[in-house]
Design a protein around this nucleic acid. Sequence first.
DNA 1: AAAAAACTATTGTACTACTATTGATTTAAC
DNA 2: GTTAAATCAATAGTAGTACAATAGTTTTTT
Lengths: 239, 239
Amino acid sequence: MARLENLNLSQRVTNELGKAIVAGKYNMETGLPTEAQLCDMYGISRTAIREAVKMLAAKGLISSRPRQGIRVEAAASWNLYDTNVLNWMLQSGPSLQVLKEFLQVRLAIEPQAAALAAQYGKDEDIAKIAESLESMRKAARTPNQTLHESDLAFHTSILLASGNRFFFHLRDFINTALGVSIQHTTPAKGSDSSVAEEHAAVYDAILARQPELARSLMSRLIEEAMQVIDRELQAKLEA
Amino acid sequence: MARLENLNLSQRVTNELGKAIVAGKYNMETGLPTEAQLCDMYGISRTAIREAVKMLAAKGLISSRPRQGIRVEAAASWNLYDTNVLNWMLQSGPSLQVLKEFLQVRLAIEPQAAALAAQYGKDEDIAKIAESLESMRKAARTPNQTLHESDLAFHTSILLASGNRFFFHLRDFINTALGVSIQHTTPAKGSDSSVAEEHAAVYDAILARQPELARSLMSRLIEEAMQVIDRELQAKLEA
DNA sequence: AAAAAACTATTGTACTACTATTGATTTAAC
DNA sequence: GTTAAATCAATAGTAGTACAATAGTTTTTT
């Protein structure tokens, strides 16, 4: 949806309402205000409100019927793999639990993607993995620079190399998960280069066309992040 | 979106246009007709057209800007985990290749979900797995009855028992994949009961709280389906 | 030739009017 | 008095008109 300032009215309202719903301000019992009330609340036309409602309905958050108004759907039917929905969830206080679930998904997807990349990946796609690895190493050597961007590029390029469109489509999901991850890992800058080398090992396995090795190395990578979270969860339980 | 007859105008148009886009009738070069042209084509008001356009935009299929009209977005940004988008893809001739990618996702997700269910699953959720297994066995004994429904319930209940909302959300995806799968497996009815028993083994592992066993048994289950597809793909290549 | 201005096609927003759906209420029938 | 039918009313659905904002395209100016 680009920058907030560039959004048109209905998109801005979609954002507002989306956040409010995910944050629980409107729920299944309360529902949403009627279109007329929303017009008053935002001081805009019904046209714009309705378009926002339609967009939220398309993402599974709400549904609307005559006489009955606008309902909030059960969270189970929200489209969690929609980038907007995901971001709204995170903005409303991402619990450690959600973060752990993120990592469980990554742990399911990424090792498999790495194995497929090793098995079927086209050479040019694998070359892109090498590129992102290179910028990772460079970032690790440069002070005051974060690995985030190149780290993401690395993981994304593996999803692409897997040749599976459904895996590649999760790049936004992974990006979001990675972003939240980083907030929790409080990076000791010295470790950046060792992180980069762990990633290099995955790349080497893919280049050498060793699916099972690539799979297990990628698993280890994510499991380490998982351990950090588990320790935090543990600490919170004891407090 | 319920039955087609019950849909309102903008939803029906959303369906029509969505199918057409996914089928390639409109693409990135051509774009879509302008709102005015769509009004003429469908003989309906601009209001309804615009609402349909907004819904498709919310699913990542298109974007629209003044003076420029309605663009088709790159397939990479379509929300593939949206039930509608998925169905439109399948209706427009599901290639074996897509089916294989489906199974690769299942192969990533479901074994992991089974392991989590064995590790963390609540007893009442595991009881639901048992229920669906029971109706699977019953269906296997009954002639002229398909396993499909109970098979799906089995896999869904494991996703639920994993306790991970992102896994559970993939139930529609799995459902769709399973549906397509079944069209290709031309089931020898005699094998239904053996299929049911393979599923039973997964359940037993979960009940016994053996994550790794549950994982590998689930993997095997899906890999068998994968082999069927691979053979078909092979046959097609030779033809 | 480059920059500025004017033009134009298309979506964005607002408003009004009417229709359709459906839950709630009242009335009628037994 | 209970049930069924008819009526009512609230809300979203659809249509149409008008104008604003945006952003390519063309023309004019320098």
